[in-house]
Every structure is written in C-alpha cells, then in structure tokens.
Design a protein around this nucleic acid. Structure first.
Length: 190
DNA sequence: GAAGTGATATCCT
DNA sequence: GGATATCACTTCG
C-alpha cells in the first residue's frame, strides 16, 4: 500500500477548505485492504456558506468540522447513504472537503461484494457509493486520517487538468464554483 | 422522474 | 417531551 506514497501530513489539511479540496484530487484514500484515487471533491466553507452543515453553528453532528484538521467527518443522509468529508482549516475554524468519487485501485473484489455491483464504474462514482464500497460508516466519524485504518496518502499524482464547476445536489449557494474534478476522468459522478 | 429512508434540527406544547 | 420539515443521494421505472 505504501506504493501509493506517504501519509499526508497535518499541515496539508490546515489550509482553506477550497485549497484542500482542490489538492485532494489525485490523492489516495485507503481503508483496510481497499484503496482508491480521489477524482472529484467539493469544498464546504462553513462561513457564510448556507449550503454547508456548519453554517448554522456548532451542533452535536457538525462539531468535528470545527475541530482539528485531518479528521474524517462522516454523516448519514437520505435515510440510506453516508458521505465522507475531510476536515480542513486550523482547529476551531469550520471547513471541510466532501469526497464525491474515487477511481478504485485495490480491494476491488471486496468493493463488489459490498456494493453488489459488477461494473468498476459503479463502485465509487458518487459520495454514497464510495463510502459503501470502502466500508466507511459513522463509526469512522472523527477518525484521524494521518493514522489508523482509514488514511490519506500523497499518491504521487502525475499532472492532470483540474475542472471547476458549481456544486451538485444542494439548494443554497448553487452558483459557487467549489466543485473540483480531474478533467476527463471517467470515474466522476454524473 | 419519483420514491424511499432515517438522522438531525427546529419548531411546538 | 413530541411533531414535522429538511436533506451535500441512489435506485429503479
């Protein structure tokens, strides 16, 4: 697994959420035997960003967004899906990056079992899908991504073109260009 | 295009 | 305490 590079340091996360979201592209998410390359992210600012969970202040659910960077924020939505975010910004400042889709690299058979889908393209091409494929649940909420079974690696990404678009599936601040994806990659969500 | 699902937040008593 | 509206989605038609 270390072929995918070294673990991203805390300093990577202690920056503005939009920067972290953009720089997350091409990195490797690892959970147990499964791994995937991040190809699509969104930034949630938490300050004047009415689309972000953190916009209405600190609550039991959103408290980890206000906590130290480099941790996972996993939340349950629509009764059946979990979504994985990475906490950004220094401790005490809200902000996170939603991981929207992955390109499966390792543990693909395991992902097929969990997803009950054959096509590799169907395994991780959406926020709810990738958490299911990787076996990520609310138990990982608050997990430290610089140690433990769930972690983020550098990935030694080769150069690629970044595409920036408005975010998807929200009802506020629809026009803010905070979605980042690797241009031309077929594993991004539709 | 619509249904389904349940946790969360924000009312109301 | 309880009721209800909302939700950063997926699946199947």
């Amino acid at each position: 697994m270390q072929a995918f590079g070294s673990i991203l340091p805390k300093s990577f996360y202690a920056r503005p959420a939009a920067d972290v979201a953009r720089d997350l592209l091409g990195r490797i998410l690892v959970h147990g035997e499964c791994a995937g390359r991040i190809v699509e992210t969104e930034a949630y600012l938490g300050i004047d960003d009415m689309a972000a969970h953190s916009a209405r202040g600190i609550t039991p659910r959103t408290r980890v967004i206000f906590g130290p960077p480099g941790h996972a924020y996993v939340y349950f939505i629509y009764g059946m899906h979990e979504c994985l975010n990475v906490v950004a910004e220094p401790d005490g400042i809200p902000g996170c990056a939603l991981i929207r889709s992955l390109e499966p690299l390792a543990g693909i058979e395991r992902m097929r079992q969990r997803r009950k889908r054959e096509r590799v393209l169907d395994l991780c091409s959406g926020p709810g899908k990738l958490t299911q494929a990787m076996g990520i649940t609310r138990k990982q909420n608050g997990a430290d991504l610089t140690k433990g079974p769930l972690r983020l690696l550098d990935g030694n990404p080769s150069p690629f073109e970044v595409e920036i678009t408005p975010r998807i599936g929200i009802s506020a601040c629809v026009d803010w260009p905070l979605r980042f994806l690797i241009s031309g990659n077929q594993f991004v969500s539709r």
